[in-house]
């Protein structure tokens, strides 16, 4: 394995782990806002790590340019989606969970 491949493998592993932890968080966290936090990790850091890993594999080709564009697109849309989602949840009257009570809203919202 060349050094590039090793770096890429590490990045891919990190990305996969982050996506997995995001998915688990989505299931396990108690309310919309913390779930969104988990989903946000999948969207941003997880995806970024995976894309970077792929870039190291791609080398100086057209594929690299495409991956960069995908990365830019994701960095723009992911946080925007999270922001909008949070705002929508807040507007529809969902209170963040501050103590041990049951969450006000059920799943569904966080599934995005």
């Amino acid at each position: 394995m060349s050094p590039l491949e090793i770096i890429s493998a590490v990045l891919l592993a990190i990305g996969s782990f982050l996506v997995l932890s995001g998915a688990i968080g989505l299931l396990r966290f108690p309310d919309v806002y913390s779930r969104m936090h988990a989903a946000g990790i999948t969207d941003t850091l997880g995806a970024v790590a995976i894309l970077l890993g792929l870039m190291f594999l791609a080398g100086w080709t057209l594929v690299l340019a495409k991956l960069i564009m995908i990365l830019l697109f994701l960095l723009l849309t992911g946080p925007t989606a999270s922001h909008t989602l949070g705002k929508a949840a807040w507007k529809s009257g969902l209170q963040p969970l501050t103590d041990g009570r049951e969450p006000a809203g059920d799943s569904g919202k966080g599934a995005e």
Binding site: F73, L76, T77, T80, H83, T84
Partner: peptide, 9 residues
């Protein structure tokens, strides 16, 4: 934020 980002896109 939604408006600005979408406008860019």
């Amino acid at each position: 934020i939604l408006r600005i980002v979408s406008k860019i896109l």
